[in-house]
Design a protein around this nucleic acid. Structure first.
Lengths: 337, 337
DNA sequence: TATTTTTCTGCAAACGTTTGCATTAAATCT
DNA sequence: AGATTTAATGCAAACGTTTGCAGAAAAATA
């Protein structure tokens, strides 16, 4: 038998509204009544029904995280996990619940988002950026629904938490150039990932500023679906002016490249330097350890939910764009002897 | 202006109950009316309010995952991530949402669980096992609330998804013994983790059956808080009858040990063999690659939610205990030359 | 003491659905 | 044709809260 606010009211000899006010700590209830009601609550072991509460208060104390499908997932698994950790750590201290949403296709995901938003199941959303999410972001904007984006967004009117990927990539490329490298390859990801194109931009910028021409034959696109990812590496390494260094956009890719180079009898970093992004456990465990750009993934999550909850409280942050700083972790894979 | 079921009813010229029945695909509504209502829904872009729906139907289409605090988290991060992935993959195909819950202390976590359950925010729970969760499990049992446990449970009446950790550990230890090792160390985790004690049991069993005495000085307990985790390794390695192999309960630990052994000038596997559990990316990336027990983490998650949803549908699975099979992935770290 | 203000509590509507029961019209049977 | 069954819909209560408004009692003021 479920115990409701009415049962408590009956036992305490007051009206349901009074009980409600006691629970919500409305100050205009006399201490005497408060005590009596609290005793009744205790006695009946009453707990408020959150659905009823949400229904009338039109808020849920719940936020959602929208995570791209398997394509990007597999692409950098660790990334999403860290973000989620950052978010859950914060919400658990602030009495919010988190619904984690993902799907195999954009259509499915979109359906889920609509359901959460229009169904009133969440108060706000953290959207993990992805170019294909435009439709989702557009929907949220149309609905005037509170949300923040982790990653890049064209619209400056959106709340976004991001790295300065261009500069970060510029920095890591410069690190190589400063070591005397002039023949530097770039291994990016699918075009759909804005982060990847940004990092390509930084790479290009560094080369240009240093008077090094960009050589198209040194640019590669990694795809999780392809078996032939490192297929062209032997070819390019057989050139007379083959690259002496690679910038890759993630530790996973860097690790793969290093394995491939080993197969070819090349030594890292003696023959070829390799650098990457994310500073995940892979970069630390690999041997040689990989020089990697720390981008504060956990902070991305933490800052995003921090911002979202502020918005929900009605405190519009002045800055619509938060940049999480980066820091290069120099390790063995890029140290020229 | 929110559009409700009443607005739809008005436009379609029917009562709200009829609209509701159309949405729920109640068969006793005439095709004609169905069409008219659907058109109205379309026209008004109506979407049902899930809180109201939950309130009256007393169900939420939401399940929760309870994850241990930072202690165990850091202990095997990858584990929880994979489990979550397995769960979300399944729920997203079955129109359920997932609330992920964690907290820093048991008290906080318990409070959150009570809130979810008593507040009626979730229909069921997946509980990631932990000895300290007894109080939570006890609470759920008392409440007669639907839940499944991932990991060990004493109570055979609970629905659990687990590995046969004893046998798995027996198997991996036997793998070492079969290679001629007789002096084998064991590196476990905190006592609070049942999985760890189970694995110790399997280790012991293998030694005993093989007529090898257990030497207490070869047993270690890894703790995430200690700086001195690998402190005693040099000491034990300086014994004349030092271990020629280590069984560790996770890839992270195995990796740490290998680093420490390298520092001591020992070679893996030539001087010392090392094996571990979980078959995470670490075991594959480490060099030497680590022989590790694949335990089907993703499947643990998948099977757990599969079971939970069956329970919620009223289909009690006949087996209250599901064992996910294990498989040893033999790699470099245990191959004796 | 009569009047006004303040403090505390209750009434009842509202939130947006679902569903058992009653009702009406149509269809089937005798 | 009248009686009975069947099919389709509506009525109204229920789910368990919150909250604006009103009212009563107590306190403060004149």
């Amino acid at each position: 038998m479920k115990v409701t606010i009415k049962d408590v009211a009956a036992l305490a000899g007051v009206s349901p509204s009074t009980v409600s006010r006691v629970i919500l700590e409305n100050p205009k209830i006399s201490q005497e009544t408060v005590d009596r009601v609290k005793k009744a609550i205790e006695q009946l072991n009453y707990h408020p029904n959150l659905m009823a509460k949400s229904l009338v208060s039109q808020s849920t104390s719940t936020v959602g995280i929208i995570i791209p499908g398997p394509t990007e997932q597999a692409f950098s698994n660790v990334f999403f996990n860290e973000v989620i950790r950052g978010i859950v750590d914060y919400t658990s201290k602030h009495n919010y619940d988190v619904i984690v949403t993902s799907a195999n296709t954009l259509v499915e995901l979109q359906k889920q988002v609509v359901n959460l938003v229009r169904g009133g199941k969440v108060d706000g959303l953290v959207v993990l950026s992805n170019r294909f999410f435009d439709s989702i972001v557009q929907f949220l904007t149309d609905q005037n629904f509170p949300f923040v984006i982790i990653g890049n967004s064209d619209e400056s009117s959106h709340f976004t938490i991001d790295n300065d990927n261009v500069t970060a990539s510029y920095d890591v490329t410069m690190h190589l150039i400063n070591q005397g490298h002039t023949s530097i390859g770039f291994i990016g990801g699918p075009r759909s990932i804005v982060m990847s194109t940004d990092r390509f931009l930084g790479y290009s910028k560094a080369l240009e500023e240093s008077g090094i021409a960009i050589r198209p034959e040194l640019l590669f696109e990694y795809s999780m679906y392809s078996d032939t990812n490192y297929h062209e590496i032997p070819l390019v390494m057989s050139l007379s002016n083959h690259p002496t260094a690679f910038v890759t956009i993630s530790d996973d890719i860097a690790f793969g490249i290093i394995q491939k180079l080993k197969e070819l009898g090349k030594k890292v970093p003696e023959d070829i330097a390799v650098v990457s992004f994310n500073n995940t456990i892979i970069s630390q465990i690999s041997s040689p350890q990989i020089t990697s750009m720390e981008i504060g993934i956990y902070q991305l999550g933490y800052a995003s939910i921090f911002t979202l909850l502020r918005i929900l409280r009605g405190e519009e942050p002045s800055d619509r764009r938060i940049i999480i700083p980066h820091r290069l972790m120099v390790r063995e894979s890029s140290i020229s002897k």
